[in-house]
Design a protein around this nucleic acid. Structure first.
Lengths: 221, 221
DNA sequence: AACGTTATAGGTGCTATTACCTATCTTAAG
DNA sequence: CTTAAGATAGGTAATAGCACCTATAACGTT
């Protein structure tokens, strides 16, 4: 089962709004609804839906103004689709040129709507996946240590060893770690030694450098 | 002056193709053209234009097939706009549902075309900027050191100190560094000491940990 | 010409990490 | 129940980094 997406419908007309909610719920989406632009904007800010289906003529804040505000939100990767009774060429161009990802006209058939939603969500997911791959690769480059390798290393260590390594990565000295977790400095030192032997680390300070390299994956201990 | 974008026009008809090239060149875009899908795909692979304006009915590889191939390319963040004489509702929906970012109909007026190009490029830029910010923030988080801070630190060091720090970041010991660059171990040690004093570093191994943190920005010495 | 910075090299001593040992007690696996 | 692995603690010794000191030669700036 794939991820459940959240869709926000901002639509003045009660009947259409409820119909859309029902249709999309049946197709597996988690639905949010709003009946005017201001309410819609609040929901967007609070719940960050994956996709917004938005009317244009609405009370309080119309679709154009809403889209403008949405696109100015930071860290905003949501898809935005207009669904409007304004069907003239100029209307559609104007809506698309505001930065909408798609523009559907009323009355809309469910095939068109579902297809439009699916393609926008899948394109956005593709983009976000490539982004997180890129972040991972960038991190691996900088740390000389991939996530996989880090996890493999951590997997070979005992609980206490991981705990010690965690504090080593925080740049704590043996004495400081001993004080922090109420152990003898000797015990802490033994753990360091065992880590070094277990992983066959060479050279001085190898435990410290290892700890720093795998630190990002050690945090969530 | 802002960045110059590269636009690829893939269009069967010579006259339209040349007209578009002229119009967009005047408006400051760097233009590439192709007269069929296969040629277009080659250019996309080689030159990675920022945006593609693409006909649908074309020899060899039609617009739909081309878009499908383009979207399967890795690390592909280009915008894709269909420009077609297929103007029926179903045609437009089909094109958009293939994953196009916009769909313009022939004959196209320059206002619509320029507006569509501008909004898609600016939206894509906004997205890419947010993504690169995110990558930077992620790196800063993991390294506990921002690019700016690293560069400020490096700026305060002398040439030799930077060189020493570079080798320290490679996890070389004082003795190893001395052997590598034909210096007395004492000199290397003095540099380490001076780095530590100059930057007011506290605690054991502070030079090593600093070196590892700024390593990404130290590599290109 | 004088001064400050940098690069070079050495002396001395302190401290922290590392290596390798033994030993006891607990816990998990067989 | 026996055994292996882990967590705890200590002893001893070597090593590496660190702090603080002097000293000379080169180099650029004022």
């Amino acid at each position: 089962m794939s991820k459940q997406y959240t869709i926000l419908v901002i639509e003045d007309e009660l009947i259409l709004r409820e119909n859309l909610k029902e249709l999309l719920t049946i197709h597996g989406y988690k639905m949010l609804t709003a009946s005017d632009g201001e309410a819609g904007l609040e929901i967007i800010k609070n719940d960050s839906p994956d996709l917004v289906i938005c009317d244009i003529r609405m009370p309080k804040l119309d679709g154009y103004q809403l889209l403008k505000e949405v696109r100015e939100l930071p860290e905003n990767f949501m898809c935005f689709i207009f669904l409007s009774a304004k069907v003239e060429h100029e209307d559609i161009r104007f809506g698309m040129n505001m930065g909408a990802d798609d523009y559907l006209t009323k009355p809309v058939n469910s095939t068109d709507l579902l297809a439009a939603i699916e393609i926008r969500l899948s394109q956005r997911d593709k983009l976000l996946n490539e982004l997180s791959d890129r972040i991972n690769r960038s991190l691996t480059d900088k740390l000389d240590m991939s996530k996989e390798d880090s996890e493999k290393i951590i997997g070979r260590l005992s609980k206490s060893e991981i705990r010690i390594l965690y504090y080593v990565a925080q740049e704590k000295s043996t004495q400081e770690i001993a004080d922090l977790i109420f152990l003898s400095p000797k015990t802490v030192e033994n753990h360091r030694h065992n880590i070094s032997k277990k992983l066959d680390l060479k050279g001085g300070h190898s435990v410290l450098t290892l700890a720093l390299k795998i630190k990002p994956y050690l945090e969530a201990k």
